[in-house]
Amino acid sequence: MIGPCPHPLGLERVTAYLLGELDDADQHDLEQHLLGCASCTSAAEGVQALTASLAALLPPVISAGDLQRLRGKGMRILETEIRPGDDAEALFAADLDLMVHRLVTGPGDDERIDVEILGEAPDPLLRLEAVPRDPSTGAVYIACQRHYRDLGFPDHVRFRLVAVRGESRRILGEYGVRHRWAL
């Protein structure tokens, strides 16, 4: 069919289809509709492009498993170990896909770990709550991405790790990184 669809597919159903959540009969009906409907195909393509973008969008803090998976996909990653109190230099070279700052801290049984990103001012530029932590070493992996330089972050940033248990907040360490960017 060309032109507007009298029975457009909803976002929820298209999403479920693309994730493989529909049962066989529902999937069959939906595929039959899509193959005959340019309008719904176009809408579904938009949803697929959006979810593909989400799949490619790395969170700023990743787990050890994520890091392993990204290496497995062939991404060129520079991993830098940073200890509490360090002020490290990091060059995002032109041939890199990703820099990972491994913030070293010991394992702990805290309820959650937050990361605060600070510039020169004492107040955080950004606070990330309940970030993943390497279960064996306790390390936190910051996935530093090339497009971050366009987000307005200063080149010199500090990452503050905060352990949270109930109402109590305890600073585990501050980690400075001076970024340089090669285009």
Binding site: E45, A52, A56
Partner: peptide
């Protein structure tokens, strides 16, 4: 594939 959303 259709264009992906801008990452920023």
């Amino acid at each position: 594939a259709p264009a992906r959303a801008d990452a920023l």
